[in-house]
Design a protein around this nucleic acid. Sequence first.
DNA 1: ATGAAAGCGCTAACAG
DNA 2: CTGTTAGCGCTTTCAT
Lengths: 342, 342
Amino acid sequence: MAIAKKVTINDVAHAAGVSVATVSLVLSGKGRISMATGERVNQAIEALGFVRNRQAASLRGAQTGVIGLIVGDLSSPFYAELAAGVIESLESQGKMVFLTQGGRKGEHMLQRFDTLVSQGVDGVVIAGAVDRASELRDKAEDSGVPLVFASRASYLEDVDLIRPDNMQAAQMLTEHLIRRGHQRIAWLGGQSTSLTRAERVGGYCATLLKYGLPFHSEWVVECETSQRQAAEAFSHLLRHNPTITAVVCYNNVVAMGAWLGMLRSGWQSGDESLESYYEQRVALAAFAEVPESALEDAPMSWAITPAREMGQSVAARMLERIDSGKNVVKNQIMPPRLVSTK
Amino acid sequence: MAIAKKVTINDVAHAAGVSVATVSLVLSGKGRISMATGERVNQAIEALGFVRNRQAASLRGAQTGVIGLIVGDLSSPFYAELAAGVIESLESQGKMVFLTQGGRKGEHMLQRFDTLVSQGVDGVVIAGAVDRASELRDKAEDSGVPLVFASRASYLEDVDLIRPDNMQAAQMLTEHLIRRGHQRIAWLGGQSTSLTRAERVGGYCATLLKYGLPFHSEWVVECETSQRQAAEAFSHLLRHNPTITAVVCYNNVVAMGAWLGMLRSGWQSGDESLESYYEQRVALAAFAEVPESALEDAPMSWAITPAREMGQSVAARMLERIDSGKNVVKNQIMPPRLVSTK
DNA sequence: ATGAAAGCGCTAACAG
DNA sequence: CTGTTAGCGCTTTCAT
């Protein structure tokens, strides 16, 4: 418990028989220091167990090497993974990150932003829903702090934003099904008020059209993101449209519901083999943010938004912003990745 | 882009016609300041958009109000949730947290610890596997930084550790099954090398004994944490021991596998109703760190380790450590929560 | 109740 | 190549 008295740059200088300035130079590897003194200083540092006080360092110098990251809520797997990517990248560049939570709906974003700024961060990344984005942007603007957004949908403008390419993902998925011989492809899930869904449904329709395939509005069914409801909607859809051979699901929960619905009806029909049943029956494809482990055994295709890589892009963008000092708005989209389970 | 010149405490003092000392006092609410000047200062702060530079503040004063949190890897849902809990609590107490990743196996823990200390954190929380825990403890000891560990298993000694109560969880689960009339209860999953598993199996056995129920070592089956393997092991177990009426699963993946195995064989047997089939058949219980959404429809009992609450406890413990200054080692265990789906 | 002044640990000119 | 000397923005005695 003997709290060792903080050893400072002075102690090191003294021990090494040089001046503090020299130690500082050795620390930051800047000035041209002779091998000899450099060595001596390092030894002193080692011997005394000196740890440089970065607070003091950045009080004088410009940058703190700290980036603030505000994520809505860490318990969302997508944002957790995104955060992991951001942190990983930034740390590999010798930065540190302050992580704070801005609330599921972004309620606290502004307040957190202020706190981060008062901690002297070099930049702020915002991941998730934002309450008052334009206010934030203005604040950032006049405190001169680079601000980068990352989100699932593209509801922000005039900001540096990295987001998934929903339309391309939908195209990939639909095209994949078509290539595997499907002609009658339905859509399951999501609420019509969702922007993300709109983008995805857009890609789905466009691809059908492109291949000259039939599009029926009854084949695009809305449903809440709940397993039970998805299972019901799925069964209902197929019962009334038995010619459908493939379904694109809005997300992993819907996909899970569809699959369970299929298992259930397959079971009730008393067929011989489960696999043969559903494979003959309806092919499933779905969007997801992370691969759904529960469906690892299901024959399914996924359009995955690579959350971790997205985080890495965000980090890269942040670094770029920081050391270019420029403020050019780039709206960057992340390509999805197609994954087939079987 | 006009980077507003940093407004400092001096500017505020000037604007308010008082001294910097006064402003400082108002800021920290310490000295006895007259209402009048307090008001005047606050107005100036507001008007100038002053944000206090905490780096400078903590350079002179003692604490920084920043806690370091090292988590193995954020993409693990359990630790993400735990981190969310820690951050949430700490932020509500006006603290901030530095979040860094120590590597899945704790490879970087030591290095990250140093970085955190150099940032002047008031304490460090370590969540996840640690490579060289005792080294860490020593480092913390002589830099005088409070250190609190949080993990799933209890492989650390002589440290401040918060962990789940695996044995009690196993007891709860087993007892729950017994109360529902089961007498022949098997165990599925986990590797015999796992400490966590050992603790859990211990609780399971103890409870069987306590109720005078039969224990067969063939009923305790090992298997990898993979859905497919669990499904196979489960089917195999039941085929050879048809009298078993309930199974305790090592984790959510195993539970999922067991359930799918059950669906599959139920389906093949051609029974009438899925629900009636498995309900008559084998009751499932499982450990989990977060409720498994994929199994929301399955009739299943869970022993949940409340990760978020665990995070809150960790935060509380940290705060306690910080302002007591004492270093009494407490090995605190979190009680599990029993949840039945149906 | 408020002001003056002395640093916290470090960096950044500028001299040598 | 290395030492001297000012501060960075804020807190904190100690006076007043």
